[in-house]
Nucleic acid binder design. Structure first.
Lengths: 236, 236
DNA sequence: GAGGTTTTCCGATAAAACGTCGATTTTATA
DNA sequence: TATAAAATCGACGTTTTATCGGAAAACCTC
């Protein structure tokens, strides 16, 4: 926390940092939706039904085994109507996780407001990632097991959102260096890979085998451990 | 390294450990191939051509966009012949990475022979994982970006092989506890997730963005850092 | 090396899933 | 309530996956 003695440039930086943080999360949580929005209420409802149905079917059967016809049926519409909304199965699959991802960012932004240090914010971020996956297992299964790594998401709204996920951590790691608890000698990108990798691996294992049983607890433990490890690197 | 004074039970354990290690890698590197093996040489060649063609096409187009007809053409056979070998595209996709994976285990086993401590063996394992991915980028792209997380690999030969990948690390982590450089207070599965996660995230990032430019170097750095972090946890 | 058997290969075709289009119904609005 | 725009759907064409029966090649035995 900045002391009152510190003024001028330092103050400026602190203020810049706060605003940079807020605008980063603002931008991330409210990425522009698709250009063409539906005009009628009925259509908005239909769109939502499609997304819900798609999430269920994709999570149950996997994207490649899922059939457009099944999703349409589940949504209570005809196959051809679905094509009015999405031009292909791939297109649909890449749109499904977006709303949840935005919701996660928003929820995180709200919760992070009370945390002042980058250290606490990072801890919260990692813990919340795991917990959100547990709460929304269908979504998580789709995102982590089927879509995240896929190359073909490039140049998609979704790829940007996934990259945002990384950007937040990168931002906090750099602040961590400024705060002095992250080693400045380490490549920040490497540190990011370390953090995301550890947590994601935990989530993936849980999605595949339902182990560890308590993902929230395991996520917290992992997050605390990772941060403690980073701190250990500087104090020597 | 065991001192000469230590004999009897301790010696026994050391010997058991070595043999457990060797038999683990033996088992892993030589998992039984598919039950029905081809009888004629011509057919064996055809099978190889299919696998090579499939790797190329899958890596280029992604599994879901790839067409069986394209793979067959690339392999120089008819579509129906391909179906004599694999009952579906999915089946084929899950068989493709296997031979490379076995090769990796074998290569690792050979290289690890000269390393005596679990620490060195673990380091080598992590470094070699990254390096093998760099050397066999098409294979790595298929395995890491498309298949590894997929739920539907369950009950497949491939899933066993992927689990083997984890088992080796788990084995070494437990030995690390015995050797005293891994904290016994930590859940070994968590430690494994940490290690695999960090390295895999690095590999995935490289496959997607070709960053970091030098994967071998980055992999070595990451592996050394991870192990140093584990060591930091015990010395306090 | 001829005859018989098994293995491998392929063309034709069925089955399934994807995707399009014009006609029809519903909604918004004036 | 007349009209235009938006949304829906059934019918149909296309693409991709998968099957099957028979031809061709390899193998085996005498």
């Amino acid at each position: 926390m900045a002391t009152k003695e510190v003024v001028g440039e330092s103050e400026q930086i602190a203020s810049d940092t706060v605003s940079a943080w807020d605008s980063l999360l603002q931008e991330i949580a409210h990425r522009p939706k698709r250009a063409t929005e539906r005009k009628q209420d009925r259509a908005k409802r239909t769109e939502q039904q499609i997304l819900n149905a798609a999430l269920r079917v994709f999570a149950r059967d996997g994207i490649s085994r899922s059939r457009i016809a099944d999703i349409a049926a589940e949504a209570g519409i005809s196959t051809s109507t679905l094509y009015e909304y999405y031009k292909s199965k791939e297109d649909l699959a890449y749109d499904v996780p977006l709303s949840h991802l935005a919701e996660f960012f928003e929820s995180y932004h709200a919760n992070a407001a009370s945390r002042t240090s980058a250290r606490e914010r990072l801890l919260l971020y990692l813990v919340m990632s795991a917990d959100y996956a547990r709460e929304h297992a269908e979504w998580a299964r789709l995102l982590y097991l089927e879509i995240w790594p896929s190359v073909f998401v490039s140049d998609t709204e979704l790829r940007h959102s996934i990259d945002d996920f990384t950007r937040v951590i990168l931002f906090l790691v750099k602040e961590g260096v400024a705060e002095g608890w992250v080693s400045p000698d380490r490549n920040p990108y490497e540190t990011v890979a370390l953090l995301i990798g550890g947590v994601n691996q935990l989530i993936i294992t849980w999605l595949l085998y339902r182990k560890p049983k308590n993902l929230t607890r395991a996520g917290t433990e992992m997050a605390e451990r990772l941060i403690a490890m980073l701190e250990n690197e500087v104090r020597r």
